[in-house]
Amino acid sequence: MNSSKKLDWFVGIFVLLGLGAMATLSISIGGATYSGKGGLTLYATFDEIGGLKDRAPVLIAGVKVGLVESIHLSEDYRAKVRMDVDDTLVLPFDSSASIRTAGLLGDQFIHIELGAEEEALKAGEEFAYTEDALVIESLIGKLVHNLGIEKDE
């Protein structure tokens, strides 16, 4: 093998290995996005979403079934959250969506509590029951307020 042929081989191997390394980085390390089906768009309206962000996970019993697509302010100044959920799921229409926090300081996510009705939520429909995010400051505020009232009595 002459030296220029050898050089071609080295550069070829280098480029292929490099592309492999880039693909590994992109797919197996960067590819943390929800890879499930999606396809079922659901809405939920909350008075307070706390620190919920786009692409936050949607969980049922702790299993990721979708993600938050977008968050808007609705006409009546509440937070309207659009979610993309696995469309093979049959969610009873009286299911409820609540915003929870992973651990004490973790990220916020949407937890779906299943209802009991036979009829299922269809694409584009909205959760009838929602539970707002807990805001620690307001909880502490309430607690302090209540303690103050007890003392006065």
């Binding site: 880039m22 992109s26 390390i29 960067g30 943390a32």
Partner: peptide, 16 residues
């Protein structure tokens, strides 16, 4: 935790 934290759009694309 590595895979969870590093995302494609911001981190990997930013890197390249």
């Amino acid at each position: 935790s590595l895979i969870d934290a590093v995302d494609f759009e911001n981190d990997i694309m930013g890197c390249f």
